[in-house]
Structures are given as C-alpha cells and as structure tokens.
Design a protein around this nucleic acid. Structure first.
Lengths: 118, 118
DNA sequence: TCCAATACTATCATTTTTGACCCTAGGTAT
DNA sequence: ATACCTAGGGTCAAAAATGATAGTATTGGA
C-alpha cells in the first residue's frame, strides 16, 4: 500500500567520482603519483627502487597509463646510457592535496598495520 | 668518480600511504564509501541499485571487507523480508573529506569522459 | 673485445578480481 | 498452497591485472 516507487527512490551522480577513479585507481598508480608528489623529479630507476617490489614491466605500463591520462610527463634525455625523468603535470599536481590527505589518514588510522601481524 | 651511493639516494615512508590504500583501494570500495557518505544510511538493495552494475556477490564481499576494516557498520533488523542497513562508522566518516575531494577533482578534470567516446 | 649502465620490451604464467547463476529463509498476501 | 519479498551464500567460470624472467640498444671504459 504505502509502497514507494523504488525506481526513483534516490539518485546520485557517480560520474565525476568514477571518472576520477578511472584515472587514479589500480595497483601502483596512486603510489607512483604519491612518489612524484614527494620528489618532483624521478628517474625510472629511482621510482622502481622506491616502490621496491614493482616489476619493470608493470612499472612501465603504469607510467604509460598515467602519461596517457596527462597526469605525469616523460622527459627523455638523448644520452647513453639512457636517462628518463618523470614529473607530475599541472593536472597531476592538482592531485597532491588528495594524495597527502590519504597519507595523513593512513598515519592516523593505519599506523599499527605492520606490528599487528602475529 | 662523482658516483653517488644509489643505495640511499633518497627515501620515503610509503607505509601510511600503503596502509590507507589497503583499506580503500579495490574496485567498488571507494564507490561504496562514497555512496554511504552521500546517503547516511542505505539498505543493501539501495546500494546495489545505486551502483548499478555491481553483482550481489561482489557487493556482499565488498561490504564485508569494509565492515571488517571498521569503515562501515551493518545493522540487521529481525524482520521478514530481511532488512539490513549500512552506515559509515566514525572511522569511515573521517574519509568523507577525501571522498568529496576526489569527486570534486573528477568534476573538474573528468567531466567530458562520457561524451568523448567516439 | 667484452662488460657495465639504464630504461625499458616481449612473452608467457599466475594471481586477483569480477561476474553468472542459482539457492535459501520465513513471514505475508493471494 | 503458493508465489513474493529481501539479503545475501555457494560454486564455478571468465576476465583483468599483475608478476617473472630474460632480452634489447648504445656507447664509453677496462
């Protein structure tokens, strides 16, 4: 009787949210962005070293995706051995506050993660 | 000659960042949190409807993960047909600013995603 | 001549994530 | 008696993401 029309009970536009996620979600992507937000310029090898367990393949795939989405830039120096530097673009830099706040949140709520492994 | 020790060129503590990601990354998870941040209380069916393409199985898996991490709470009403409501916990609510800023970022930088499909 | 250095690529293998589909409980309305 | 309602669970299957491993190019130096 007092049944409401469930077809339109309430709605939300997830598009901008999904759109953002499409660019920044996926393993390693946010880590890469965070790295570059902390250290303006990094070479391929430095990133790899900093992330530790990422494989070269995955790293280059992710770097390419981020570059395709214009969040990072690739600067190649014509020398041997090769030297390639990565930086955030202006668009990428607008993510810095978000990345920082995620890190801060982690500091507050995920500190004891390591030690809790029994 | 001027070779530096690459073993310690620079360092960063990714732990809090990774810790945070561990709780909120993965498909659907942020969407769920975002949903619940927009609508304080939602029933299982409402969430499913709002997210559209999520399957019941995946939805319940994700809800459980978020609950296990104390980001959301499950309130079950002893009635038939069943009624279960989900809300953010206090801890989960601390994510709201982050979720909102991601959405805002998406509005600014990912608006034309839909139309650009040719 | 051969090795070192760097930033990758290519080719699989594997893991992780996601989805399809059907099933259940147990009051209520028909 | 029986279909209906909701919030899932169970069991595969499929797809997507990630990983392992080895290899390439170039040039200066031992």
């Amino acid at each position: 009787m007092d049944k409401i029309n469930l077809e339109e009970f309430r709605n939300i536009d997830m598009n901008p949210f999904d759109g953002a996620l499409k660019l920044i979600s996926g393993k390693w992507k946010m880590n890469l962005l965070f790295c570059l937000s902390e250290f303006d310029t990094m070479r391929y090898g430095e990133i790899k070293k900093t992330l530790g367990s990422i494989t070269p393949h995955v790293l280059s795939v992710k770097l390419k995706e981020l570059e395709a989405n214009e969040l990072i830039e690739r600067h190649e120096y014509p020398q041997v051995p090769p030297k390639v530097e990565y930086t955030l673009t202006d668009k990428g830099r607008t993510l810095i506050p978000i990345l920082r706040s995620i890190c801060d949140w982690g500091k507050e709520y995920c500190v004891d993660f390591q030690d809790k492994q029994e």
